[in-house]
Write a protein that binds this DNA or RNA. Structure first.
Lengths: 259, 259
DNA sequence: ACAAAAGTGTTCTGACTACACCCATGG
DNA sequence: CCATGGGTGTAGTCAGAACACTTTTGT
């Protein structure tokens, strides 16, 4: 088993240089929402038990954005998800950890020209917002686990992956002012309260129920459906779904009144 | 002369692979403001007379951001300028033009392994806002001119440089809602009208004089100076200067009331 | 009937708009 | 003294915040 993996990994190293753009990688911050908490999907590396963002390399004939889409799809099995590039992390510093070399050592690989992987990498950060229940997390070849972690309680992460998550969250918060959010975070139909919870967790603060309802409805991106019986001892809320047309129009043109 | 340049260029090619990160470049959209127009600084290549953004490569031990700072400094002779990374352009498409190969051909270079320059590049876009009068435009080794061009009347640009400018402008417009602007676009002291003109040209629309004054003053980033005699046949306006401390605090924390 | 949570209404405030008015200055 | 442009005032509108009131439902 260990042997097989090492072989697979050697093969990757051998072909990597031929297949991938050198020096550039992508990392995906995949946000989900569950049990009132905002979550990120992380991988646990076999060789050092440290956690990392799902990431990958860019094929020589592949758009960088497509590499991010591919990574997202491979780890979650989801398609057609909204992905947003948010920053290129390009400091020299981020390669200082010699992550690749340690990985090679700990895999017991020495007899190979691993120059490709050992050189410095800059990485493009992408974030995605996905529906927690629809995700089937799949670890990659180098990792033993692929699991959700609460944003407020992250484990030790390699290199600058913690900063990448924070930057992604920061950009997401800003973009809430211009872009609608929720499309593939929620099921087809949902009560407004669910959407409000998402906004509250992204922003990290409570919002007024009545005001949120009015504001979000004023955007004109929601279609009202019939009522729904939640089972609670209270009035059943209306259900809504996103009006795709106006939702994506809003994504492009922005929501807020600007200067 | 032509000979000398070709030699210089050959030398660059020879050392490029050793010096620079492969596959990644930076391009700077340098905005200036003059005669009521919003301008961009462009280079004109010697070999094909086409225009391009000032750009460059990243040294193997250099932060990507620093490469952008270096490019900005070399073309403008300015230091300590606000630079903002705004997007990584990573489509395969953008290398399709075979820009590098044509360049080599037209320089009459064939006897060299130019693999390094010919491979696909992704580029990080940065924008800068600079004081037009302080800039001393300096062409780089491959270009014959370095001049300002009105944003509304751009010449033919290589590859996707037109899209890069547009994206930079779009991001800049959005960021106007959160970040103050003007710090190194204006001299030390200036009347508010000047700042308003900048906002108007960036946004491409007129703003109300009275309301602009109140809004910009409400940010608390301006210090009032003594009056100034402009020579016009009218009341002399107050002069202001940016309060660096609160200006940079505002840059970090944002201006607008967000969610 | 009562608690819980949804839907809706109301009041207050503060920001932005549009425009009016007055002030200083040079010709 | 008047044209020009700067400074300031103000009425109207609109959005958001806070909170009250009513409605529906399961137990």
């Amino acid at each position: 088993m260990q042997h097989q993996e090492t072989n697979f990994f050697k093969e990757q190293l051998r072909t990597g240089e031929a297949l991938y753009l050198p020096s550039i990688s992508v990392d995906c911050v995949i946000f989900g929402f569950h049990a009132g908490q905002f979550k990120v999907l992380l991988l646990k590396y076999k060789h050092n038990n440290k956690w990392a963002l799902p990431g990958g390399f860019v094929y020589k004939d592949e758009d960088v954005e497509n590499a991010a889409i591919r990574v997202l799809n491979e780890r979650t099995q989801l398609k057609d998800i909204f992905l947003q590039q948010f920053y290129l992390f390009g400091d020299v510093e981020r390669s200082k950890e010699k992550h690749a070399e340690k990985l090679l050592q700990e895999e017991g690989i020495e007899d190979i020209d691993a120059h490709w992987l050992q050189q410095r990498f800059v990485t493009a950060g992408y974030y995605a917002l996905v529906e927690y229940n629809k995700v089937k997390p799949v670890p990659d070849a180098l990792s033993s686990e692929c699991t959700w972690h609460s944003i407020t309680d992250l484990p030790d992460l390699i290199i600058d992956h913690k900063q990448i998550i924070e930057k992604g969250l920061q950009v997401l918060r800003r973009q809430l002012n211009f872009q609608p959010v929720g499309y593939n975070l929620l099921p087809e139909v949902f009560p407004i309260k669910e959407l409000q919870l998402i906004y509250e967790t992204i922003l990290g603060k409570k919002l007024d129920r009545a005001n949120f309802q009015r504001k979000i409805l004023s955007y004109g991106i929601l279609d009202k459906k019939e009522k729904h019986y939640s089972g609670g001892a209270h009035k059943a809320p209306y259900l809504y779904s996103f009006n795709k047309e106006s939702y994506f129009k809003a994504l492009e043109n922005g929501l807020a009144k600007e200067w």
